[in-house]
Simulated scan of single mutants.
Amino acid sequence: MKIANAQLWVHDQNAALDFYVNKIGFEVRQDITMAELGDFRWLTVGPVGQPEIAITLMAVPGEPVMAEQTREQVLELTGQGFAGTVFLTTEDVDADYAQLTARGVEFVEKPEDRPYGRDCGFRDPSGNHLRLTQLFPMG
């Protein structure tokens, strides 16, 4: 078994797509709208050069999939950053931090050394956390 996709709830698939492609630099893997399923949109993105895994940017559904009260709770928790985290690694966290900041990514934590590496954090337009880490050599 292998991991193919991980899912993040997003408030607006178009805003999420713009963020992940134009600000983070990911590529679109699939963008399929299925009319027969009420215009359900399957939208996935992933890092260039890592085709074996993608992040599904999933709109929070309403009835009949999810009760309205549950939908509102998911939207609220996502907006507060409690619905998921994506952990990214890089060879140069400070250079990527500068590049992403120049593209308009707002970081909630600047790069700093931790026991495992140099690490920083930012959030997507829906509130999901993303961590960017340059791992220290183990040994």
Rank of each mutant, 00 (worst) to 15 (best):
D18P: 04
A54Q: 03
G62D: 03
L130W: 10
T56K: 13
L135N: 08
M34V: 14
L8Y: 12
E27M: 03
R123T: 05
R71H: 09
A83Q: 04
D124N: 01
E76I: 09
Q13G: 06
G81F: 08
S126I: 10
Q30L: 07
T70A: 10
G104M: 09
R29F: 09
G49Y: 14
N14I: 05
A83M: 15
L43H: 02
I32R: 11
G62W: 13
Q50P: 00
D113I: 11
Q13C: 03
D96K: 09
H129Q: 04
R114P: 00
L37S: 06
T90N: 05
L17G: 00
G84V: 15
P47M: 09
F19E: 04
E91T: 15
S126G: 15
V45C: 04
G117I: 15
R103P: 06
F122E: 07
V108Q: 04
E109K: 11
K23W: 04
V108S: 09
T101C: 08
P61N: 09
M66W: 14
R114N: 10
I3C: 06
D39H: 08
G46A: 08
E63D: 13
Q50Y: 06
L132G: 12
V93Y: 00
Q50V: 02
Q69G: 02
T90P: 12
V93S: 00
A95C: 00
K2L: 11
E76D: 11
F26S: 04
V60R: 03
E52H: 12
A4G: 05
R71W: 11
D94T: 13
E76F: 12
W42G: 06
T78D: 11
N22T: 02
D119H: 11
A35M: 05
L135A: 14
P125F: 08
Q73G: 02
L17H: 08
V60D: 07
M1Y: 03
L75F: 08
G38E: 05
P61K: 10
V21W: 06
P115L: 01
D12K: 01
F136E: 05
E112A: 15
M1E: 05
V21L: 09
R123F: 01
Y20W: 14
R41A: 00
I3L: 15
E109N: 14
Q69W: 00
V86N: 07
V93K: 00
P111G: 08
G117Q: 14
L75S: 00
T44R: 00
M66S: 04
C120M: 09
R123E: 03
G49V: 12
Q80K: 11
R29M: 06
R41I: 03
D96R: 07
D18V: 06
L43G: 02
T33K: 11
T85Q: 15
R114S: 08
E109D: 13
N128E: 01
I24S: 02
A15L: 02
V65W: 09
A15T: 01
I3M: 15
Q7M: 14
E91I: 14
D12T: 04
A16Y: 12
F19Q: 04
N14P: 02
I24P: 01
E76C: 09
V108M: 05
Y116L: 12
P125R: 07
M34T: 13
L57M: 06
Q99I: 12
A102Q: 12
N22H: 03
D119T: 12
G25P: 05
A98W: 00
E63G: 05
G104R: 11
V86T: 11
G46D: 10
M1Q: 10
